[in-house]
C-alpha cells in the first residue's frame, strides 16, 4: 500500500448525495481479475455520453479540474455494494482522498486498506468545499484538513476522525494482513478451543 503522510491538493466538487458504488464503478466493469485499469470505468455512466464520448458538462471532464485529486461530495458517499473496485477506480483515476459529511461503512473500510483517505467533516465544511475548488493540505499525522487561501496560507483547519490503527498503517504504508498473521498464536489457540463447527461459547 502507498504511504499517505501529507498531501497538498486541489478539490473538485461533485454535489450529489448518496453516491453509490454502482455509480462509482458500474457492475459491467467488475469482470476483471486484477486491480489495475479501473479508472477507465470511474463514474462511467456520468462521464460518458451514450456514444462513448466524454460528456463535456460532467465536472470531471472539465479541463480546469484535471489536476484535482481530492473529491468532495454530499453525504453518504460510497453506499451500496461492497465492491472494492470503487476505491481501486478512484485511485487509478488519480484521486487520493474523498471528503463527505458521511461515508458508507464498507467503502470507508475498503478505502483505508488501499491508501485512499476517507475524510468525514461537518455539513458546513462540505458546503464550503462544494462552493468552488479549494486548495487543501491534508495531514494524516495530525488528522487535519487545512483549507488554504490563494497565497497558500491556512484559512481554516478542521480535525477529522481516523482510527489509530488505520492511521498507523497509512503513515507506514503497510497493509493489515501482516499484523493479522502476527496474531497466529492467538488465532490457533481460539480455533483449537472452538474447533467444532458450533461455538460452545454461545
Amino acid at each position: 500500500m502507498q504511504r499517505f503522510t501529507e498531501l497538498t491538493a486541489t478539490t473538485v466538487a461533485l454535489p450529489r448525495a448518496d453516491i453509490d458504488t454502482d455509480q462509482i464503478i458500474p457492475a459491467r466493469f467488475l469482470t476483471t481479475t486484477t486491480r489495475e485499469g479501473l479508472g477507465d470505468g470511474l463514474f462511467a455512466d456520468w462521464r460518458f455520453l451514450s456514444d462513448g464520448t466524454p460528456d463535456p458538462e460532467f465536472v470531471l471532464n472539465r479541463p480546469e479540474h484535471a489536476s484535482a485529486t481530492v473529491l468532495v461530495t454530499e453525504r453518504n458517499f460510497g453506499c451500496g455494494s461492497s465492491r472494492e473496485h470503487a476505491p481501486w477506480a478512484l485511485l487509478d483515476y488519480g484521486f487520493r482522498a474523498v471528503i463527505s459529511s458521511e461515508i458508507a461503512d464498507i467503502f470507508h473500510s475498503n478505502s483505508l486498506k488501499n491508501g485512499l483517505l476517507p475524510i468525514r467533516v461537518s455539513d458546513d465544511v462540505v458546503k464550503l468545499l462544494l462552493s468552488r475548488p479549494h486548495k487543501v493540505l491534508i495531514s494524516v499525522e495530525t488528522c487535519t484538513l487545512s483549507i488554504l487561501n490563494d497565497a497558500g496560507n491556512t484559512e481554516k483547519t478542521i480535525e477529522f476522525p481516523l482510527d489509530g490503527f488505520s492511521r498507523y498503517c497509512l503513515l507506514e504504508g503497510i497493509d493489515q494482513l501482516g499484523y493479522l498473521q502476527g496474531q497466529s498464536d492467538a488465532i490457533t489457540a481460539y480455533a483449537n478451543d472452538f474447533a467444532d463447527s458450533t461455538n460452545p461459547a454461545l
Binding site: 472494492e84 475498503n110 486498506k113 497493509d175 493489515q176 494482513l177 493479522l180 498473521q181 496474531q183
Partner: peptide, 11 residues
C-alpha cells in the same frame, strides 16, 4: 471488501 476476503482466506 476484497482485501478483507484475503485476510479471511489467509487467517
Amino acid at each position: 471488501g476484497t482485501t478483507e476476503v484475503g485476510h479471511v482466506l489467509a487467517t
